[in-house]
């Protein structure tokens, strides 16, 4: 089974880390990932920018709403994600609007840029399991 592991934390604290603290945490996290990487079991790993860099496209009654900031509702939960390489935020917003147009019912798409992205080693065929 292929799993997504999603990391939630207090960003006020995380972004107040000094460079040294940050480097120390990253090293420890990397050590935890290393055996999986060695075994060829690690898929994409990403580090996201703070929520201040986020934009949310929310399906409204008519035209989808484009809101600044992260998705903050508690009724809806995370059901999936896309990783796409766009030139501009406008392109990302247009893509999210297209997704919401064909997605029945209420849906929101949070657009958040990556700081770091490692594509990982898992191939598409394995991912269909």
């Amino acid at each position: 089974m292929l799993y997504a592991i999603l990391c939630y934390a207090h960003e006020e604290t995380v972004f107040a880390w000094s460079r040294e603290e940050e480097a120390a945490v990253m090293e420890k996290l990397h050590a935890v990932q290393a055996p999986l990487e060695k075994a060829g079991k690690l898929g994409p790993v990403g580090r996201l920018m703070p929520t201040t860099a986020a934009t949310t496209v929310r399906k409204g009654r008519d035209e989808p709403l484009v809101l600044d900031g992260p998705f903050a509702e508690t009724k809806e939960v995370l059901l999936g994600f896309y990783t796409v390489d766009f030139e501009t935020l406008d392109e990302a917003v247009a893509f999210a609007k297209d997704l919401s147009a064909v997605n029945p019912g209420s849906s929101s798409y949070e657009i958040r840029p990556f700081y770091v992205f490692h594509p990982g080693q898992i191939t598409a065929s394995e991912a269909i399991v």
């Binding site: 201040t52 600044d68 501009t88 406008d90 840029p113």
Partner: peptide, 16 residues
């Protein structure tokens, strides 16, 4: 690079 990337993403948001 990390700060630059965040800044450019932020400017994109502002320009909208």
């Amino acid at each position: 690079k990390k700060l630059t990337a965040e800044a450019l993403a932020m400017l994109d948001k502002a320009v909208r």
